[in-house]
Amino acid sequence: MAKVSKESYLFWYETMLRIRRFEEKAGQLYGMQKIRGFCHLYIGQEAVAAGTITALKHEDPIITAYRDHGLAIARGTSCNAAMAELYGKATGCSKGKGGSMHFFDKDNYFFGGHGIVGAQIGLGAGIAFAEKYKGTDNVCICFFGDGAARQGMLHETFNLAMMWKLPVIFVCENNFYAMGTSVERSSNVTEIYRLGEAYDMPSKSVDGMKCETVHDAVAEAAERARKGDGPTFLEIKTYRYKGHSMSDPQKYRTKEEVEEYKQKDPIETTLSTILKKKYATEAEIEAINERIQKEVDDCVTFAEESPYPDASELYTDNYVQSDYPFIID
């Protein structure tokens, strides 16, 4: 394992805590009907986002599916912009046009949350194609879930990406359940990383409950891509503590299973490492906790007080052409 700096540990702790507190708040607000539509929480999977960010450059594009709050926040989207988007406000990261599933943040090279399972696998390869075409050394990291691994898109894209040696890292965030269907019930091949081997793509399984293992795997894959050696497939095993979306009775798994994973909670693990290595004092950790709590409290106020978009915005951003003649009867 590469030597991980004190700064990385503190970044991981702070980032994961920000995501956790944000998502807890989003869950509450959903219950209060402040947030509508579909809403998929990232709680439990935070180490995947946090460990990824320290392994990449800021300019490396990120694309993911609809469980997108965590990755956007880890990459730098503010809690304000994220919460305002959940509220459907004009100050949201997609100006209220995307909602929970479609966060976008161009300044942070965040190419979006995408709602059709697996569709972003091909888009991620295309984003990488453009980086290679333009001659940059940027690497696209493309996330999808274990459910998306069963889409045909994965196979077509893996084949193209390997043939063209695209600078892309494919990450399957395997949280073991595609909505209510377990990995075992979706395929004969339950070791998802092995799907990459069919295309001779370097592929491996990674412990996603630890930032260290995620960071190392992504850093190695990014180095391979930057050298021109093409894609890597990482199956990062993680776990979502909450349901698939907000209306999930979770009858497909036991409470014991959920508890088992909570014992390996990435935030707790990272915190104990920080304290053990004396990277921060208890008082310093408390200061971080308070700052994050305030940030999350403030983002709710920000979202509450932000204006809704004007209804006329329905007609903007459908076309770049500013005078497109919409049919209006």
Binding site: P61, I63, F111, A119, I121, G122, L123, G124, A125, G126, I127, A128, F129, A130, E131, Y133, K134, G152, M153, E156, T157, N159, L160
Partner: peptide
């Protein structure tokens, strides 16, 4: 499906 997606992703990223 695959090459259409690569085209769309590439178009989103400046080509």
């Amino acid at each position: 499906l695959g090459f259409a997606a690569v085209g769309v992703g590439a178009a989103m990223n400046g080509v």
